[in-house]
Write a protein that binds this DNA or RNA. Structure first.
Lengths: 203, 203
DNA sequence: CCTTTTTTGTTATACTGCGTAGCAGTATGT
DNA sequence: ACATACTGCTACGCAGTATAACAAAAAAGG
């Protein structure tokens, strides 16, 4: 574990090595399944000694986390601004921004959905998105019961993620603008419309 | 591979062995993560010789498939009858039946969602459910454009699965009857309401 | 420029699980 | 009782993980 609490800058060699490992993992995940990727394979493609991997990461999972967190942070911030919107026109526009961002980082998100053993990460993303909507929707009004709010926010989060996945699998066919409209009507409008008519569910 | 094209009945020893292996896998998956389960561990718990596993299955995946297909078939048939309903009262009742079925086979579905390397299976399930709704919703009426239908049916399938997952993680707290209502209003009503107002998306 | 520090490369090691093979033992049903 | 099929046991080669010791190379500081 090189340079634990870096007093100054990070050693250029360290940055280079970590970047090579990240790129090698991404490159491999676009070719084969995550479960079949070995650490030896990664270090080989990164043109780095095998043991070097363990000098920077404790496990393959940790490397994968670092790779995905990079791009997922951008998605979360966009969703956060989206969740605060209440006007109809702004909702569509923000929805479009999300799908444009996805399209720009398509490789990264393809990895997120395609790979098999990242269900854990996907769950974490769902949790984050749901939390965003849970807090931003609470002051919106007449949601009855904690459970109902939890169900609704979870519904929004999972639906959005599933829609993104579907879009990627269909080669991003409908344009981001069109997907923004779909997102608004199919997820947001219908959910807020339904929640107000939902029964108060026993906790 | 014992008794490939069985001319008569299956050897009792074979049925016993396969059952032991299936039960051992389920038992282990409820304790630890799928990725950390070894074939030796399974045969050990099943009280069966290591090599016996390979006399019945080619891979661990194949065993997992056999285990999950068993219970997923029941879910799909219930969803199929549900998809054909159009009356409001029947929708709620059928929705309740689904969650009651899930509750009855909770262990199986916990495995489906909890385990990590079954994203492939989950995807297959989504595809099946979406296909059901796609065919049963097409004659329902005024859905414009193939893409819109595809998005909507995918939305229903993923939302239903996500709702089931949420319900299991919350220890099946709201009753199946309440979940049936939530399902109807949050997924079905809002989706069919939204679809009719959706723009025709370019193919 | 030279020295010290840090990182990287090389090689070797113990450990674990996978998949296969051969042979002996045991259960099935006819 | 008999042939057939299934199961148990032991051993082996292979691949990947995680770690260690020592040599080589690159960065930082004077």
């Amino acid at each position: 574990m090189p340079r634990k609490s870096s007093p100054k800058e990070v050693d250029p060699r360290v940055r280079r090595t970590r970047r090579l490992l990240r790129d090698a993992l991404v490159s491999l995940m676009l070719e084969e399944d995550f479960s079949s990727i070995s650490i030896r394979e990664i270090t080989e493609r990164a043109e780095v000694a095998y043991i070097t991997f363990y000098r920077h990461y404790e496990s393959l999972d940790q490397l994968l986390m670092e790779v995905l967190d990079e791009g997922l942070a951008g998605l979360l911030t966009r969703i956060e601004t989206l969740a605060k919107q209440s006007e109809t026109s702004a909702l569509e526009a923000e929805g479009r921004l999300i799908f444009e961002y996805i399209g720009g980082n398509a490789d990264l998100f393809r990895i997120l959905f395609k790979s098999q053993s990242v269900a854990r990460i996907r769950k974490r993303v769902v949790k984050n998105i749901a939390a965003i909507f849970q807090t931003s929707c609470a002051p919106l009004g007449r949601l009855d019961g904690q459970v109902t709010i939890a169900i609704a926010s979870n519904h929004i989060a999972t639906s959005l993620l599933a829609m993104i996945e579907w879009w990627l699998e269909n080669n991003m066919k409908p344009t981001p603008a069109e997907m923004g409209k779909v997102y608004k009507s199919l997820i947001i409008d219908s959910t807020v419309g339904a929640v107000s008519s939902l029964p108060v569910v026993s906790k």
